[in-house]
Design a protein around this nucleic acid. Structure first.
Lengths: 164, 164
DNA sequence: CCGTAAATGTTATGTTATATCATTCTAGTA
DNA sequence: TACTAGAATGATATAACATAACATTTACGG
């Protein structure tokens, strides 16, 4: 996928690393990273942008062996549900799209910077944000279970390219 | 609408106040709070829960004069777009629903606590959260434009009712 | 009253997601 | 090997959310 990663890096290695981590996590969780699930995860990993479910569906259709029947939406959504429940991906609700989690081993929430220009999404450390949320929630007597932070704006690459 | 507001209050007064504020804001912005827009806003104001577009559509159909033709989705979505652009409502992306803004006069972003049990959504002050976001975004060289914070959990009412 | 722009109505369709049931695959076990 | 129970996938249909495109009506300054 034509895509500018947030910083120059070996994306092949990035993918392999994520896949290896996924294998480990699934093993630990006693669940199976089946071919379909692995394929969907690989498709998501191709890009640092978030990917829509139907884009994944198309990519999956192309990736499948020539003779195979075309996959249907539930195939993708089931794989996505599996990957989410094992914390391998996040769903970005504001743009209805899915993206790989960059630190799947940690039990963390979802904090993203989404570039409105190039559509790259960067996962950021959430400790400080979470602390601020906890303070406000505490004042309301609210028990926090899941945090979704999606910040829209312009990334550093795009700012450099298009000043003003 | 059967609904527990976050704290006991006179909801009629709550609605009237919001409508009055909306009138003022529209006057200041030189835009018109037409009957359809006002009706949609009123429907949203009925509840402290977020309301789905098609639920609004149904309510709008009932609210219209007996002889009037049934409204179609674009009618609702146009009103929602108007209300959003004048900062009178927010869209909660994680649940595809719309809710009145509690401080429309301020130029603020969207910070919500959403109860997974009663579905009430509480808008919280975002200053601290925003500061934490700004710090992380700054480290990435990211220009922040819009912030969406949606925290899922259990509100104080529901915690009291269902301990454990 | 007329012309223009804004708002709304109307029809159709695009996009995202899930329910349901049939079939196939997998791993344990006799 | 063959059986079987549960997991995973295939397949069909439809639900839920949202917008494009164009026609019609309304508001209002001239």
């Amino acid at each position: 996928m034509a895509n500018k990663p947030p910083a120059a890096h070996d994306h092949r290695r990035c993918i392999d690393k994520a896949l290896a981590a996924a294998e480990q996590i699934c093993y630990k969780n006693s669940v199976k990273l089946t071919p379909v699930r692995k394929q969907v995860f690989t498709i998501i990993l191709q890009s640092h942008r978030a990917t829509g479910a139907y884009t994944i569906l198309e990519a999956l259709a192309k990736a499948l062996p020539a003779g195979a029947s075309k996959p249907a939406p539930p195939t993708v959504y089931r794989a996505l549900a599996f990957l989410q429940s094992n914390r391998l991906i996040h769903r970005l609700a504001s743009i209805n799209a899915y993206i790989a989690c960059c630190r799947p081993a940690r039990n963390h929430e979802s904090y993203f910077l989404i570039c409105q220009h190039c559509h790259n999404a960067t996962e950021i450390p959430g400790e400080n944000i979470s602390a601020a949320i906890a303070r406000q929630a505490g004042m309301e007597g609210f028990k926090v279970r899941r945090e979704h932070v999606e910040v829209l704006g312009v990334c550093t690459n795009c700012t450099a390219k298009e000043p003003g």
